[in-house]
Amino acid sequence: MSPPASPSAGSAAGGVSQVVATPAALALIAQIKAQHGALMFHQSGGCCDGSAPMCYPAGDLLTGEGDRLLGDIGGMPFYISTSQFEYWKHTQLIIDVVPGRGGMFSLEGASGQRFLTRSRLYDDAEWAALEAAGRV
């Protein structure tokens, strides 16, 4: 696994980012953005594409009250459903890239790479900062 990169400004709550991206993921985001323009991400919760981070052209996926803006990666917003957030809220999501075919609705599908979500538990200080910021 590549080490996480620093997220874009504005995505950290209390100094703690809830979603970050590895250098490999940031490079793929830049490549996709060059082809498609502004992007958005949503952490999929199942069915067709499993539990994968999905990449869409900005605005192609309508978000609503059941979705939560977790932060941004590569300057692009990253959303997660409220139910998925409840399951993963104690972890920082680390978006990485591995060889393979992405989800059928995700823009990286034809690149030969796919986004993958890894995670790590927050330490006590990070959790306290997130609580203080009202982010969990």
Rank of each mutant, 00 (worst) to 15 (best):
M1Y: 14
M1A: 11
P4V: 00
A5P: 09
S6N: 12
S6K: 08
S8C: 07
S8Y: 12
S8P: 12
A9V: 12
G10N: 08
G10H: 13
A12S: 13
A13E: 13
G14I: 08
G15I: 03
V16I: 06
Q18N: 09
V20F: 09
V20G: 07
T22A: 10
T22R: 05
T22E: 04
A25F: 03
L26S: 11
A27E: 12
A27I: 05
A27H: 05
I29D: 05
I29N: 03
Q31R: 15
K33S: 09
K33E: 14
A34R: 01
A34S: 03
A34P: 01
Q35E: 14
Q35P: 00
G37A: 00
G37C: 01
M40V: 00
M40W: 02
M40Q: 10
F41V: 08
Q43H: 14
Q43K: 11
G45T: 10
G46P: 02
G46W: 07
G46L: 04
C47I: 09
D49E: 09
D49K: 01
G50T: 01
S51M: 08
S51E: 12
A52E: 07
P53D: 07
M54C: 09
M54W: 08
M54N: 15
C55R: 03
C55E: 06
C55K: 00
Y56I: 06
P57A: 10
G59S: 05
G59N: 01
G59W: 00
D60F: 01
T63N: 10
E65T: 12
E65R: 15
G66K: 10
R68I: 11
G71A: 04
G71E: 01
D72P: 00
I73N: 02
M76F: 02
P77I: 02
F78K: 03
F78V: 07
S81N: 11
T82Q: 12
S83E: 15
F85W: 15
E86V: 09
Y87F: 13
K89F: 09
K89H: 14
K89C: 14
K89N: 13
Q92I: 11
I94W: 02
D96G: 14
V97Y: 03
V98K: 10
G102Q: 07
G103Y: 00
G103L: 04
G103P: 00
G103I: 01
M104A: 13
M104T: 13
M104Y: 15
F105E: 05
S106M: 09
L107Y: 01
L107P: 00
E108T: 06
E108F: 10
A110P: 10
A110N: 13
A110I: 13
G112W: 08
Q113M: 13
R114E: 06
R114T: 09
R114C: 10
F115T: 05
L116C: 15
R118F: 02
S119A: 12
R120E: 11
Y122L: 07
Y122A: 04
Y122P: 03
D123C: 09
A125P: 10
A128S: 15
A128K: 12
A128I: 06
A129P: 04
A129M: 03
L130R: 04
E131V: 15
E131P: 04
G134V: 01
G134T: 05
G134I: 02
V136M: 14
